[in-house]
Design a protein around this nucleic acid. Structure first.
Lengths: 349, 349
DNA sequence: TTGAAAGCGCTAACAC
DNA sequence: GTGTTAGCGCTTTCAA
């Protein structure tokens, strides 16, 4: 196997100085075309690659983006993060960055990991997912001048959609549930229920609002048509049954997640064999378009995860490029990207 | 925010030379205890962290392990890789390593990425997952002296269980299906079917063998009791129906994946409403114990993914520690780890 | 447009 | 047991 070539080898091979090689790589405009070509040939011939460690030492930039890998949580919705992570890795690579992973069990240990990572590997930026109400991470990183983007809006008062303190990318969940609700209205449903999570979670409240807003606009009072529960199949089943067994039952259900929707589907199935054998079975729509939804033929709201990941990377590189120089500090004003989800209709929904 | 402290700062603070600080960090035995303590205090006081880039430049070791993040593939089984990746990140961190991600669509682009990564970031090792028959990656890395472990046995002739050319960790799939089959035998079943993939995939053949071996040992001829199909819910449903509708139908099904098992469950459900309302419904057992299995109450064979990940890291560090010095080249003989899965019984199985 | 010098932070050798 | 020297590969001055 060929020994690793250095910039010196390339320079010797191309009959130029080391500095010229560096210029070709970093500021090609400064070098005469003929020289540039000679250097490029040498690079190819020797299989030369710039050594990140050396470059990082000089420039202070690691071309590394760190992100936390989530534990599998309750499961079904876990695949959303994984698809995002895959796209993030691809988008980052295209922009010349690599993704470095870390884990953390709680906020304290995440801060400690920040310290470790920043001290040792000097990532150029962080991508924060699963942001939540009163998430302390943005301010921690912000105070230390470490660039970052969140996938998820800041749900606190501290910087709403306008004038937010940092860059973020998110998917418009309300638009998704609104589309689902509209679709059901268009197919003749009126009593459309909603299965969601207890108030207080930004994401959950957002998704609920799309449903209630759309229903109200169509002249249907949403009061009493929704249930809040923990995110799980069994929870969804119980809550759905409650809604389905009501005196004046719903004929369709919009859910805040595929887990809940799967539970609702179970409830529907059990109901069908029992009471009301004549009425058409209630329709269920999930959220996240997970593999499970596809597997069981469940309609679901699909998030544009690849676009979200690409958005994170481009917001980040925007920060870098506008940075003064060495330590990549945010210079450009924070920007935002709110993407539209889309409803995937399956089965009989 | 405090400026980043260097080894020089620590040395000055502790009133020793830079080299002594380095010694405290890397060969504590060489330094007198009192001095060592003083240095440790300085480190803590200044929040000092060794700079990886600088250390890497000197030692040639990056403390980075690279691994490919899989695209979500057919879906349901995807979560297996994600759980593995999460555990891998945690285990690596504990050993002082970080996980760097890359993607690749085909073998060619993966080799190109190897070149990039090795040239630029110099990962100390790779973890290869989803190994397959005639996988070219082990030899590619092996020829270049890059340490690696595979999660998955080498399925080729080139180095079977004994005398394998490289280190690997795997889960004994045959033992898993054998346990599932034995469980069914113990619960009174005799005609136990198997839903798997076409012959030729190492993993699939392995899982099938556990079933057929166990059935045969119990005096049941497995011939005609299995079906091979692509891995998907719909595929599983079709194949299961075929087995369930046979003249002499099976009363239980062991499946090579949860996707297939989910399909089988669908087939069972449809059957139940139709023919044979008297007979007890067939029992289905899946493989991988994915979140979906948990959600629908499906029994499934669970892989010890955390142990597998820890095994990968420990086999890797074993290689490093035994390496002569600078470029971490494999010195210790390749080792293997074959872990036992366990059956998770749910519902009425 | 190209070249020479300096130094990023660290540790392997060696000298004290 | 501790300090000094040198240099990993690169890029940012600055000079030619």
């Amino acid at each position: 196997m060929a020994e690793k070539a250095t910039i010196t080898d390339v320079a010797r091979y191309a009959n130029v100085s080391r500095q010229t090689v560096s210029n070709v790589l970093n500021s090609p405009g400064l070098v005469r075309e003929e020289t540039r070509n000679r250097v490029h040939e040498a690079v190819k011939a020797l299989g030369y690659r710039v050594n990140q460690a050396a470059r990082q030492m000089r420039t202070g930039r690691s071309r590394i983006i760190a992100t936390r890998i989530e534990p599998d949580r309750d499961g079904i919705n876990g695949s959303v993060f994984d698809r995002f992570l895959h796209s993030l890795t691809a988008s980052a690579a295209q922009a010349g960055y690599r993704i470095l992973l870390y884990t953390a069990d709680d906020e304290r240990s995440e801060f400690a990991t920040f310290d470790d990572l920043i001290g040792a590997y000097e990532p150029d930026a962080f991508v924060l997912t699963n942001t939540f109400h009163r998430d302390g991470r943005p301010s921690w990183l912000g105070e230390r001048g470490v660039p970052f983007v969140t996938f998820g809006r800041p749900w606190d008062g501290t910087g709403g959609v306008h004038g937010a303190a940092h860059s973020w990318v998110d998917v418009d969940g309300a638009a998704g549930t609104a589309e689902a609700t509209r679709h059901l209205l268009d197919t003749g449903h009126r009593r459309i229920g909603f299965l969601g999570w207890p108030a207080g979670s930004g994401v959950g409240d957002d998704r609920r609002s799309g449903w209630s807003r759309t229903l109200a606009a169509a002249g249907v009072d949403p009061t009493g048509l929704d249930r809040a529960t923990a995110d799980g199949v069994a929870d969804g089943e119980a809550a759905a049954r409650d809604l389905l067994d009501a005196g004046h039952p719903v004929t369709a259900l919009v859910c805040a997640s595929d887990s809940l929707a799967l539970g609702a589907l179970n409830a529907v199935r059990l109901m069908k064999t029992g009471e009301r054998p004549d009425a058409p079975p209630p329709v269920v729509i999930g959220f996240d378009d997970t593999p499970v939804a596809k597997a069981v033929g469940l309609s679901s709201v699909s998030q544009p995860l690849a676009e979200a990941a690409a958005g994170c990377v481009s917001l980040l590189t925007r920060l870098f490029d506008s940075a003064p120089s060495r330590p990549p500090e945010p210079a450009a004003p924070p920007a935002h990207l709110l993407l539209q989800p889309s409803l995937v209709v399956r089965g009989s929904a």
